[in-house]
Simulated scan of single mutants.
Amino acid sequence: MKYPVLSINLRKIRENARQLLKMCKESGISVSLVSKVLAGDRKTIGDIAGLGFSQLADSRIENLIAFSDINLPKVLLRLPMPSEAEAVVRHADISLNSEIEVIKLLDKEAAKQNKTHGIILIFDLGDLREGIFFRDDYLEEVSEILKLKNIRLLGIGTNLTCYGGIIPTYENLSELIKIKNRIEREFSIKFEIISGGNSSSLHLLPNIPPGINNLRIGEALFLGRETAYGKILPGLHQDCFELAAELIEVKTKPSYPIGIMGMDSFGRVPEIKDRGLMKRGILAIGKQDAALEDLTPLDENVLILGGSSDHLLVQLNGDFRPGDTLRFAVNYPGLLRIMTSKYVKKEYLE
């Protein structure tokens, strides 16, 4: 076995997927499979794509290309860059949008490619990331979109918690329903998709505002928790992923550095407590692969001290030696970084 390695438990991910799909279906909610945390991992996504998801969604075109043979409509989650309009139309069936000029570029590209490109118009309900601000007038923009021959306005959506930490509530998601009703009434249309956010909206089920019929789910699927309050979802696994790294040094040393302290390798002045002599270990993994605060040792005899780009330093209690492997749980940002690192091997378990 080569280290460091991330173990991916496909069985547990499948079980999470089935449970989430069941939970959402009972509330009339379709689920877009959000794959971005897996950085284009074809094996994991291919294993669960056929379980009943309505779309496959990612923030990067490169990942959608990697999934081109998976038989689900592809959704680009991040607002399209004007410079990638051609690729968006070519590789994504649907994109989330908020800028009329970019939508017009997509329309031109779709005409060139003899396609109709679907869009979901995003509204900012107060989290202050992407979207048309919900208190601004939007009818003129909708009117322009509806005139475009190669754009199909499939629906509207929102995103919450990702920047401002604003929690989805019955009240703020009801604002999205008000927008839906006003647009449908004004233009005599009927939307297919009303997307009420991400894993942070799951805490509202089954009491989500009527009319919300889609959620975009990633973190809850892979880590088994909703993201408004961080609560564990019943029946879901939280340990689908586990990181293992190898000890390359084990020595007893002082806990506090000796000499004049300046900046560390990341330009910060370290804050280190003097705990006397301790058994210290070094693992062959570092900040290039994962932020250390995103790792939790699974052995209570291991405490993370810090690290550098290629080294993770730990305090050890007990009998450890070079060549031993230590295992860690990872959170969402930790998983994102580890999956992106080409230096961390991936191991698939059934």
Rank of each mutant, 00 (worst) to 15 (best):
I8W: 02
R11G: 14
N16D: 04
A17P: 01
Q19C: 12
L21F: 04
K22T: 14
C24D: 07
E26V: 10
V31P: 04
V31K: 08
K36M: 00
G40W: 02
D41K: 02
D41Q: 04
K43S: 13
K43C: 03
D58W: 00
D58H: 01
E62H: 02
N63M: 01
D69M: 01
I70G: 01
I70A: 10
V75F: 07
S83R: 13
H91D: 03
A92G: 03
A92K: 03
D93V: 00
S95K: 02
I100V: 14
L105E: 08
K108F: 08
K108V: 04
A111F: 09
K112R: 14
Q113E: 14
K115Y: 07
D124L: 07
R129N: 01
Y138G: 01
V142R: 04
S143E: 12
E144C: 05
E144W: 07
K147R: 13
K149Y: 06
R152K: 15
L153D: 02
G157M: 01
G157T: 06
T161Q: 08
C162P: 06
C162R: 12
Y163K: 08
Y163T: 00
G165V: 07
I166N: 00
P168Y: 10
Y170E: 15
Y170W: 10
L173C: 09
L173F: 11
E175V: 14
L176T: 00
L176W: 03
E192H: 06
I193T: 09
S199V: 07
S201V: 05
S201M: 08
H203G: 06
L204G: 01
P210H: 05
N214P: 03
N214S: 10
L215H: 04
I217F: 02
I217H: 00
A220K: 04
A220G: 10
L223Y: 03
L223I: 09
A228L: 10
A228E: 09
A228M: 12
Y229L: 15
P234G: 03
L236W: 07
Q238E: 14
E242Y: 00
K251H: 15
I258E: 15
I260S: 15
E271P: 00
I272P: 03
D274C: 06
R275E: 09
L277H: 03
A284S: 14
A284V: 12
A290C: 15
D299F: 12
L303P: 04
G306W: 11
G307E: 08
H311Q: 11
H311T: 08
L312K: 03
L313H: 14
Q315W: 12
Q315S: 15
F320N: 13
G323F: 12
A329D: 13
Y332G: 05
G334N: 06
L335M: 04
K345G: 11
K345T: 03
